[in-house]
């Protein structure tokens, strides 16, 4: 029987409390959840047969809900869905081999929670707004016209240049929003990761790691940002276990 791994915890965690929380929960296969621990580390696992692991959204959410329930009480490293080890011995050996990485990552996320922020907009409308805005655009465009007056491809080149400049303006705008967000995050002592222009409508996809007691301050900051940028839609989610801030692969 294989062991499905849910999360890694410090051995300093109150193991009696973990066991009592797990008592009412079942793993994916319907088997009991339990702790496997060494002197320094512990993992939450359940017995499972490979054939019982069906990778569908129901099972993934069930799996995530166990991690979330534990994360509400303890600092932990969430493990990706589908992580299975052959035996308890294999788990213990894995904990020994990866002790340093696990401890460092646990320290990094101790008593912290992850929040996600996605910012949406109609990028075509935003481009039109930016285009209509200051003189900068038209001045740049004039310069471009003069630069290529002699070219037979002037119209085509001008069109491409204008498109390129609009993209640049959009990126500059996105960077300015990110800078504003970072200004707020700095005060919250949050760690952050940003992705820009993930799709044409999702201009920013960010994750933050911060102390739980700063949650209300984060909400307030996002509310302020939303008020300042009425053409954007801010979607803040959380608190989540720190999925995006555990950056190591177990050996």
């Amino acid at each position: 029987m294989e062991k499905m791994i849910y999360a890694l915890l410090s051995a300093n965690t109150d193991q009696k409390e973990v066991i009592s929380l797990l008592a009412g929960r079942k793993g994916l296969s319907g088997a009991d959840l339990y702790l496997v621990s060494t002197a320094e580390m512990a993992v939450v696992a359940c017995d499972i047969k490979r054939d019982d692991i069906i990778a569908n959204s129901y099972n993934a959410i069930e799996y995530a809900s166990v991690i979330e329930m534990l994360a509400q009480h303890f600092t932990l490293l969430p493990v990706r869905f589908g992580s299975v080890m052959e035996s308890t011995d294999a788990i213990l050996q894995m904990l020994e081999r990866n002790l340093d990485d696990i401890q460092q990552n646990l320290l990094k996320v101790e008593k912290k929670y992850e929040f996600g922020l996605k910012i949406f907009c109609d990028s075509e409308k935003l481009k039109a707004d930016l285009k209509a805005k200051p003189e900068a655009m038209s001045k740049k465009a004039e310069t471009a016209d003069q630069e290529i007056t002699q070219s037979i491809y002037r119209d085509w080149v001008n069109k491409k240049l204008k498109e390129h400049r609009l993209e640049e303006m959009l990126l500059t705008y996105v960077d300015s929003v990110i800078a504003e967000i970072k200004g707020h995050l700095c005060m919250l002592q949050a760690v952050s990761k940003f992705n820009k222009m993930k799709t044409s409508t999702m201009i920013i996809d960010a994750v933050f790691l911060l102390d739980m007691e700063r949650k209300d301050a984060l909400i307030g900051a996002v509310a302020d940002l939303q008020n300042q940028h009425s053409s954007l839609t801010f979607v803040l989610t959380g608190p989540w276990p720190p999925y995006n801030f555990v950056d190591f692969t177990v050996k």
Binding site: A64, I67, F81
Partner: peptide, 19 residues
């Protein structure tokens, strides 16, 4: 959707043929 993104694509990865 956010939970699915995280649990399927993030978190500690156990390497090897198990996954």
């Amino acid at each position: 959707l956010e939970a699915l993104d995280r649990v399927l694509n993030k978190g500690v990865i156990l390497t090897g043929d198990v996954v």
